[in-house]
Design a binder for these strands. Structure first.
Lengths: 175, 175
DNA sequence: CTCGACATGTAAGCAGTTACATGATTGT
DNA sequence: ACAATCATGTAACTGCTTACATGTCGAG
């Protein structure tokens, strides 16, 4: 793959769990070449454009495999700015709170639609039992992304119901 | 609150969605004081120990409230290293894959237990309708963290079932 | 008296983004 | 011809972690 290809891949399903900008990718690729973990070769794209392609070296493959089996000492924080804002709910004007939740609901619903489209595009009605190993990794990542968004939306809806009830009880923002 | 207090708070529920080390917190607090968004005062803790306390200024409160209503242009990536590893499933020896998933299941189950304990400690059987606004933000964040972990565990179990079936079919890692 | 928690800081360095900068290719 | 996408890079800066460093307080 090329740096550009990697940049594009981060716009697909895996981008839900890890991503980087092209400016970082090009720098890292050079670093990996200098460490002999990957090697570079040129592929002509058109007449003049030299597309720089990279492939993993045996040394890189070894490094990758040991990384894949590594257990992180601590589970790292999956940051979520929206949750951080909700933590400070008491400082949000009560009439804005519902709007904020509905806005997030809309954005998350759009993301879910995109992911489901990706899913039916790549897997359709296929049974994961019959997928080859390469596809299986992508299948798991996509189902993970979809279930994450679905769960997020369920939580948003439950929270919206609570907020609505509190407004109906006229007690919202007054306690 | 003091820098130490903030560090401690990041070990509680909100730490599931945002966190920082004390080394960063102390630097940021000084920056915020110089921007006049917070102000500092001393509280004696014991005889000699001067605990540096901070409170938000009116200017800071204004800034906070405008930040709380800010909509991020793009939803940022909620990074998850485990999902990244799963993406490269084809490079993991098939006998290790199950172990990897079970390990993550164990860790996530422990996290879920911790969160549920926090929940019953702070909210018990309370109805969120009757919570005061300050508590409500914490309630939402904790329920969000809990539902996120529950959903993660469901996905792990589903994936484990698929992997087990593939092993039983003797087709795992061979396609 | 000693250990664990409380409490605060600095420095080096890595990870990652934003902005700047350039040029080729393809489809309309 | 023009625009969108393909394609690659650098520089400045911010965010964040790791490691270093020091000292107090309370309980047993």
């Amino acid at each position: 793959m090329s740096g550009y290809d990697i940049t594009s891949e981060f716009k697909q399903a895996i981008g839900q769990f890890w991503s980087a900008k092209h400016s970082q990718i090009y720098v890292e690729l050079k670093k990996l070449v200098s460490e002999e973990l990957i090697s570079q070769y040129i592929q002509m794209a058109g007449v003049k454009l030299e597309k720089k392609m990279y492939r993993i070296t045996p040394k890189g493959k070894k490094e990758l495999q040991s990384w894949l089996l590594k257990i992180d000492e601590q589970l790292e924080t999956e940051k979520d700015v929206f949750a951080l804002r909700v933590y400070f709910l008491k400082d949000i004007p009560s009439e804005e709170v519902l709007w904020l939740f509905f806005n997030q609901l809309k954005r998350k619903s759009e993301k879910l639609s995109f992911l489901k489209e990706q899913f039916s595009l790549h897997f359709g009605e296929k049974d994961p039992i019959n997928l080859d190993v390469e596809e299986l990794g992508h299948y798991f990542v996509l189902t993970k992304a979809i279930s994450r968004e679905e769960n997020y939306i369920i939580w948003l809806n439950k929270s919206i119901e609570i907020i609505k009830k509190r407004i109906a009880d006229k007690s919202f923002g007054e306690n």
